[in-house]
Structure formats: structure tokens, C-alpha cells
Computed example of a mutant assay.
Amino acid sequence: MGKLGRFACIFVPMGLTIASLICLLLVFLGGLNKGSSVQTGLYFMQADLSEFTANPDLDVVDGTDLDNTLLSAFESAQADDDLKDYYNIYIWNYCSGEENNGSPDIDYCSPRKASFWFNPVAVWGLENTNVEQLFPDELQKGLDTYEKVAKWMFAAYSISFFITVGEIVVGLFAICSRWGSFVTTIVSTASSIMTLAAAITSTALYGALVGTFESVLKPYKIHASLGRSSLSVVWLAVGFSWAAGLFWLFSTCCCSGRSSGGKGKGRGGDGKRGGVTAEKTPYAYERIGSPFLPEGANRSQQHHGAEVPLQNMGQQASAYEPFRHERV
């Protein structure tokens, strides 16, 4: 039962670790297949340009002439069919599509790239204009920060993913001993910290970017929103990872894996607890067979002290039981 109990003890943290890994894997699979609604739905941020031509309210923006120039650049890009209605941003690419009955119909996904960041100037086909210089300072600063932090975010997710894989591999050794659980707990702690860091970074980064898009580009009927599904999966990964770490720590104190059966310290020869094994000591007295037993009496009768009536002993019978003095 020892090994079985040990296996049951680490089954829970192993399952939680695998669940965390699956959540991280879903984040990396986001935007992989444009034909999968699940994968295209796991975006961090969505830019909605479907209402871009619906009478932009330029009166609420300072610098009307400048904004008219910016609007002209967008309209030119739209005329060249460079603008799509929706842009979904993932961890290492983006997907775009047109509106279909009020929902995005994704028809293109960009090549996947490490440390990806969404550059609206390049994606919206505005490279040949001076539109980047026309962006308000708030938007330009937001994009510069986004480019730098996106590299760290991708590294955090990658490190978290591979450490979690290592946690599962090391966790297999925890079946054998509590030392294995101890080492796994250390690896799990590193994985939990990196997963938490990645979740905080992505939530804060895209939350700030959505706020910037909404405040700067809202007059142009360009909206932005957070991908709640993707962020929910990320924070589930955090929860699973930290819960696994607690159970790995618990397994270092319990379920040693030693079998409760067999002979051990404090057990008798029959395996029962409390048994005492008597050992012979030097110069012990051992009873010997009586010379007065009838011929043919067996040794067990002698050993158990079988009594046989004394006959014809007369005056020579001894009052003492004969013993043999020997060194064992």
C-alpha cells in the first residue's frame, strides 16, 4: 500500500500541473488556424474598424486639420482594401477578417513570429504616408511601450511553458520518494512565478493598449476590446500552477511510499508490531534430557518437560533437575 498511497498523493499536483500546461498551450495555439473558432477566439485584444466610415466625430478631437489629414490616410488605406473590419491580436501573430452578421469572419492569419507586436502602421498599410507622425503623442507612446513590453511578455510565456514541462518530468520522480517531491516543489515555484508574471504583464499591457486605442481613435469609430477568453485561460493557468505547487509541497511531508508490511524496526519475527525476539546469552543454562526417561522418548518430550514416573530410583534419586552448563 505504500507505493500506491504515494502515487495517490502526487496524482492531484500532477493533474493540476498538466491542467496549467494545457492552458498555456491554448494561449500559444491562439491564431494558429483561421478555420477554428476556438483558436481565433483566444485573442488578447481586438481592434474593430467595422464602423470606420460611419461619420467620424472630429469635433471632439483637438487639432481638426491634423485629424482630417489622419482621416484621409485611413480612407486611402481603406480604398486600397488594406483595412479589414476586425483585427485579433495573439501572442505571436494577428488575424483579420470582415464583418459577417455582426461577428468577425476571419479569413487571414499572419505568419507567426517570436516577440510579436501589432504595428498598426504596417498592418493597416500606412507605411507610405506620414501618418505615424500624425499620431497623437499618447498613441505613439503607447505603441512604443507595447513594442518593448511585448518582447518580455513572449519570453515570460515561453519560459513558463518550458518550466511547466520540466515540472511534469521531474514530478515523475516524486513517485519514488519525498526528495523527488521536494525538487519538484522548487521547479513548481519557478513555474508559478513565471506564469503569474506573464499573466500580469499581458493583462496590464493589453489593458493599457485598449485604453489608448479607445481614447485616441474612438472619434474615428475605431474601437478596441480585451480578449476575455484568452485572459481567463491565462489566469486559470496561474491558479492551477499555484495550487499544484501547494500540493507538491504537501507531498514532501506525507506519503513516504514505504510499505507498511514486512519486518522492520520494532517488529517481531512474525511481522507484528511489538514482538520481541529472545536471544541466547553466553553461559546460559539449557535443560538437558533426563537420564531417567524411558528408552525411545523423543526429544520434544524432553524439551517440553514431559513427566515420566520415576522408577527404582531408591536413595540415588537426585532432588535437582539435571542441567547442562555450556557457552552458547
Rank of each mutant, 00 (worst) to 15 (best):
residue 1 M to P: 06
residue 5 G to P: 04
residue 6 R to D: 01
residue 7 F to G: 11
residue 13 P to H: 00
residue 19 A to L: 12
residue 21 L to F: 10
residue 21 L to M: 01
residue 34 K to V: 07
residue 35 G to A: 05
residue 38 V to G: 02
residue 43 Y to S: 14
residue 43 Y to M: 08
residue 45 M to G: 06
residue 47 A to N: 13
residue 58 L to V: 09
residue 60 V to S: 13
residue 63 G to W: 00
residue 70 L to S: 15
residue 72 S to L: 02
residue 86 Y to G: 02
residue 88 N to Q: 10
residue 97 G to R: 01
residue 107 D to S: 03
residue 113 K to W: 10
residue 120 P to F: 00
residue 121 V to N: 05
residue 128 N to Q: 15
residue 129 T to I: 06
residue 130 N to M: 09
residue 136 P to H: 08
residue 141 K to A: 10
residue 145 T to R: 07
residue 146 Y to D: 02
residue 147 E to T: 04
residue 151 K to A: 13
residue 153 M to T: 14
residue 154 F to A: 08
residue 154 F to C: 14
residue 155 A to D: 15
residue 159 I to P: 08
residue 166 G to Q: 05
residue 170 V to M: 09
residue 186 I to M: 04
residue 195 T to L: 09
residue 195 T to Q: 08
residue 195 T to D: 03
residue 196 L to A: 14
residue 201 T to W: 04
residue 205 L to N: 01
residue 207 G to W: 05
residue 210 V to M: 01
residue 212 T to L: 04
residue 216 V to M: 00
residue 232 S to Y: 15
residue 240 F to P: 10
residue 241 S to R: 07
residue 242 W to H: 10
residue 242 W to A: 08
residue 244 A to D: 02
residue 246 L to C: 05
residue 252 T to S: 03
residue 253 C to M: 01
residue 259 S to M: 06
residue 259 S to Q: 07
residue 266 G to P: 08
residue 268 G to E: 10
residue 271 G to M: 03
residue 274 G to A: 12
residue 276 V to Y: 11
residue 281 T to Q: 09
residue 287 R to S: 08
residue 296 G to V: 05
residue 297 A to L: 04
residue 299 R to N: 06
residue 299 R to G: 10
residue 299 R to H: 03
residue 305 G to Q: 04
residue 306 A to I: 11
residue 307 E to Y: 12
residue 310 L to H: 11
residue 313 M to P: 09
residue 316 Q to Y: 14
residue 316 Q to M: 14
residue 322 P to K: 13
residue 325 H to L: 15
residue 327 R to C: 05
